[in-house]
Structure formats: C-alpha cells, structure tokens
Design a protein around this nucleic acid. Sequence first.
DNA 1: TCCGCTAACACCTTTGAACTGT
DNA 2: AACAGTTCAAAGGTGTTAGCGG
Length: 584
Amino acid sequence: MLQDKGLSESEEAFRAPGPALGEASAANAPEPALAAPGLSGAALGSPPGPGADVAAAAAEQTIENIKVGLHEKELWKKFHEAGTEMIITKAGRRMFPSYKVKVTGMNPKTKYILLIDIVPADDHRYKFCDNKWMVAGKAEPAMPGRLYVHPDSPATGAHWMRQLVSFQKLKLTNNHLDPFGHIILNSMHKYQPRLHIVKADENNAFGSKNTAFCTHVFPETSFISVTSYQNHKITQLKIENNPFAKGFRGSDDSDLRVARLQRWGCAARGWGGQMGFRHVASVTLSVSSLSSCLSSCPPHPFSKEYPVISKSIMRQRLISPQLSATPDVGPLLGTHQALQHYQHENGAHSQLAEPQDLPLSTFPAQRDSSLFYHCLKRRDGARHLDLPCKRSYLEAPSSVGEDHYFRSPPPYDQQMLSPSYCSEVTPREACMYSGSGPEIAGVSGVDDLPPPPLSCNMWTSVSPYTSYSVQTMETVPYQPFPTHFTATTMMPRLPTLSAQSSQPPGNAHFSVYNQLSQSQVRERGPSASFPRERGLPPGCERKPPSPHLNAANEFLYSQTFSLSRESSLQYHSGMGTVENWTDG
DNA sequence: TCCGCTAACACCTTTGAACTGT
DNA sequence: AACAGTTCAAAGGTGTTAGCGG
C-alpha cells in the first residue's frame, strides 16, 4: 500500500520544485514543529538531521509532540487573503490548493491514521455581493459529516514523516446523496478543514488504553464552498497555480492568444456583443490589451514559464478598466466564538496571553506556525445580514483601475472581523459509528499493508440529508468508498474566534490534543456493522474495512464531537494542557 | 428577473501500458 | 532476461459557458 497512488502523490508533492516546498519549509523552519526534538532523519528515511537518538526520542514521543506544517502555506495565504472559494459539484471536485502537510514528531515505529474532516466554520450562509462575501442568513443544516482518511493509513510515523502527506484526492460535493464518499458540503457556506492524527495501537489500532489523537487546524485553509466562482481573484489564483487549469492561462504564442480571445470573446457576446466584441477581441485586443496585460501581470512563483493572462483578466480589462479594481472587500460580519489557547513550544506548555491581549482578527494572514494547545469555547450572537442582491464582478462598480489584480486587498482575516459571537453550545452527539462487525473481525491488524485504494479499506455510510438521527449501517442506502468515512451526525461547527477574544500571534494553526481511554470511546457510541456491498463497479470489490479504520471512524467522531462539546463545557478556563484534554 | 446549479465543452495534466534501447 | 527511458492514448481535473429551474 505504501506504493499506491496515495504514496505516489505524496512523493510527487514532496519532490515538487523548490518554490512550493521551499516556501513551506522556510515558513516552517523557525517553528519548533519541524524541528521536533530527537527525530533522526536517517531513521525516517530522510537526510540526517540534528538530534539523533531515535530510540530515546521514540520513547518520549507522544501524540502531543507531533508537529504539523502546512505545505504551500504561502499559496494558501494568497487564497485566504482573497477569500478562498472551493468549487463543489455533484460529481465531486478536488480542493485547490490541495491539503498537504509535513508531519514531524511522530514515533517512527508507531502507526498513525491521518484523516481530514471539514466542519462548518460558522452558522452563516454567505453570498457574494459587491465583490465581497456577506452573510446572507442562517446556515443550512450541516451535511452528514464525512471523513477523508489518507489512503496510506494506518502507517508508521516514519512513513508519514518521510515525505509530505497529501490529501489532494479529497473531493468535495454538494450532492446530499453522494455515493462516492466525497465530503458533502453546502454551497455558499464557510468551512474549515481539520487534520486529525490518530494513534493506532500496535495490536488493534484503537484498542489501547491510551488511544490518542490530535487535531490540527490551519485557519488559512478555511474556504467558502461555491458551485461557481464568485470572486474573480480566486479564479485567477486557481488558474495561475493549478496545472489542470493551464488551458485558461495566457501564452506567449500570439496565435494561441488570439484563438483564446476569439473563444471567449465569442462566448462573451452576451455582454460585449453590442460593441462587436468578437472582432475586437480577436484583432485589436490581441495587440494592445494583451501586451498591457502581459506587462502588468507579475510573474508568479508557480508560473515562471509564461506570463499569466487569463480570459477573465482580459475580460475585465476589455469591458472596462474600472472593472479591474480591487474588490472592496469589507468586513464580513459573521459569527465568531471565543478561543482561548495556549502555546506549546518545544514540548513546554506556556500560556501566551489572556484573550484580550491577543490580536482580534479571526484568521490572521500572518501568523507563525507555532503549535498551540487550545480550549475552544462557543458563544452565541449570530448576526445575520440580509443584504442586497448579488452583483457579478463584471457589473460591480469600482473606482479602482489597473491594480485590481495586483494590489493586495485587505486580508481576508480582517474581513472576517466581527462582533463577538455568543452562542450556546450545541452538543453534538456522535450518532453513527463505524462497526467492527463480525465480517471485519478477522482482518489483520496494523502489520498488514494498507489495502489497495479500491479495496475500500475505508468506508462510509451516507445518510440522507433529511435526517441527523441515529442511523446504523444497515439502513445506509449507499456504499462505502475508499478513504472516506461518514458520520451521520450534525457536524460540529468549528469554534471560531471572537473579535473580542484571543488570537494567536503569527501563523499559528490550532492544535488540539486528546488522549482518551478506549473504554470511554466505546461508551460514546455503538458500532454498526459493515454495510452490505451494493452497486460497486466491477473490479472494485470492497473488502471489509480495516478495523483500524472502523475504529478510527468510531473513535474520531466520538472524540471530536465530544471534544467540541467538552471543549466548550469544560475547557473554557484556558487550561489548555494535555491533561485538560484527557478524559477522565 | 435574479441567482444558484448543472451539464457540456475545450484544454490541459496525469497516469499507465506498450514499446524500444541498452 | 532485466532494467530504464520514451511514446502514446486514455483517464481525469480545470474553468467557462449556456441554459434550466426555483
């Protein structure tokens, strides 16, 4: 399994050209996360690094020592500052930027399961109006929570640390009945991906008395789900940086440019037809406007080979110079909750500051990546704005000219500043649990190689959106699919920050550690049996899920949900130590 | 009329099998 | 025979667009 595509893509990402990884490394270099004490590069299959006694380090490495660095952090920041949007489609759409992390601090010999879930960032529905995101009302009920488990899971710490861990095959969908196991989201809602690292016991993955997991949240990975891009800047960033969108970039080949212009000029007849736009686009603009665009488009670190001109840029410039203004992205009035956190550096837990001492912005663009322990507290105070109609960016008035694309808008974080959000915590019970039924009982333990991707080593149950009630696997109408879990439960809303509350300085991401006994895990929810196979394509025989993964589903959701709940109820005092996260 | 959503489309990258050379 | 490198077609990802429907 370590040679499957999951690993391949990880390797590929790890070997990505200097800028991307280099930036990430540089960004992370100062942080202790990537300088985990005692990690031997040789033991991890990587170049030797400082600190070398693997055995001693392994003995001391616990779940809270795991450090996670977000790959391509700078790219994420760019999107975040513009207000990241992720397309969701019925068939499922990948995230871009893709979620890739560098993990350190694991015990090289311990097995871990890495998985991602995506939780609502707040209780709002948004709309894009006047070139900015605004609250448009109350959020729709959250979709059935699904987990994306990295296909390599479970794997040793050495494996995870050897290279980047890529979740690029994670897909998002708005299909409530999605049968593919993609993560289901509501359009026009804001979400926050979370990375969970679950320690797998040597014998039964989750059977140890001290099954532990940690959760890492990178605020810059939050996004608003859309069915079509709303913010032109996001479209441009996607086109510039996503290789699959290369076809929408410009080119030095003038013929190609003309062809592209003709194509979109034709398509644009609706808005430019009255001025004979097709002709203009193919002739006049290919000379003047294109050169103007070329000269004004800054080289992008990920697009060095050619200047970036997209149809969208051209369109904006062609329609009206005024349209190329920087969107006036005002404050996004949303709901936010208090957050108290405590920094953990180099294994020491040190309280940083009182909440009021910390920055106000919800998701600051500039934070260092220090690791934080967190206590999350939700408050209410949702303020919903029903604002006037949405206008497309093409129609949006603007007084700014050429700097539309190049001038940095107010950081998205700042846009997210909001009054305090005081909301009663909604306890969210884990309603569906993966099973370790008889048919999977015989599956070998962690010593087995991870099953092949289509062997469905992960599974999910899909519940109709209409219900969040407890649902056992027997009633599930759809099938498990690789690398995804579903928990038919209300998704926990991510505790976000109050404008009055604390903010970690720098680029910190949030990390929450937990360590619970298995007995407590089991008390939190019954297991469901593995669903019967139905409708799988030929050649995709689904094997019973790994017990690790079943247990992961059970474990994680029971723990994360209880974590959300308990963090609100119990951990509001700011005592963010590991001990505080230890149940019982 | 507005706005969100969908399917079709062209363009592109990725992937893996087949082929060739050493 | 084994391995490495190349070629090529299929598969899949991307944003764009027109049209649909609430």
